[in-house]
Amino acid sequence: MEVTTGWYLVLGALLFVIGGTGLLIRRNPLVMLMCVELMLNGVNLSFVAFSRTLGDVGGQTVVFFVLVVAAAEVVVGLGLVVAILRRQPGTTADDLSALKG
C-alpha cells in the first residue's frame, strides 16, 4: 500500500473537523483557542501535501505564513482571555454574549 496525497488530505480534513467540532461545543475560551490551532494544523497538512505532489515550494511558504499568523493570533487571543478572566473569573464563552464589558 502506497501513501498517496489523498491520505494526507483526509487526515487534514479529519483534524480540521475535530477542531471545528471542539470549537463549536466547548465553552472554555482557552480550549476553543486550542481547537483553532487544530484546524490550522489540518489545513497546513493539506498545503504541504499539495506542495509535495505539485513539486511547488509555494505551499510550504503559505504554511510558513500560517505559522506566523497563528502565533500572532494566539498572542492576541490569550491577551483577550486574560483581560476577560481577570475581570470576571470563571467566564465561559456563553457569558460573553454582550459586547459591552
Partner: peptide
C-alpha cells in the same frame, strides 16, 4: 470528494522552484 476525484492534483507546473 477526495475519494471520488482519486488523484486530486491538477494544475500547472511550479513556477516558484521545484521541490525534489
Amino acid at each position: 470528494l477526495i475519494l471520488a476525484v482519486g488523484e486530486p492534483v491538477t494544475g500547472v507546473e511550479a513556477m516558484g522552484g521545484a521541490l525534489g
